[in-house]
């Protein structure tokens, strides 16, 4: 999958699940603030990404991902392997 297409797909599923405008999701934006995630809803985001892209993500890996830009890189790299 091209990275542009991957980014578009990530943005769309996140905007729909967390009921935010897709325009608010930018590479520099903070994920938790933009999607208003707390410790309970963080697991929803992980489960959504795992099921959308058929990848398995560990809890510790998520802790390091702060912005959407680093999330795109993380998933892109994971899919490439």
């Amino acid at each position: 999958m091209e990275k542009e297409e991957l980014i578009k797909q990530i943005n769309e599923v996140l905007a729909e699940e967390f009921e935010v405008e897709v325009e608010t999701i930018t590479p520099e934006a903070n994920i938790k603030e933009t999607l208003q995630l707390d410790s309970l809803s963080l697991v929803d985001m992980v489960a959504l990404i795992e099921s959308t892209f058929s990848v398995k993500i560990k809890g510790q890996e998520v802790a390091a991902v702060k912005t959407f830009g680093s999330l795109y890189d993380f998933i892109y790299e994971r899919l490439g392997k």
Partner: peptide
């Protein structure tokens, strides 16, 4: 089990 993040299991 669908997902586990930190101490939360979904």
């Amino acid at each position: 089990i669908m997902s586990e993040v930190m101490n939360i299991t979904l």
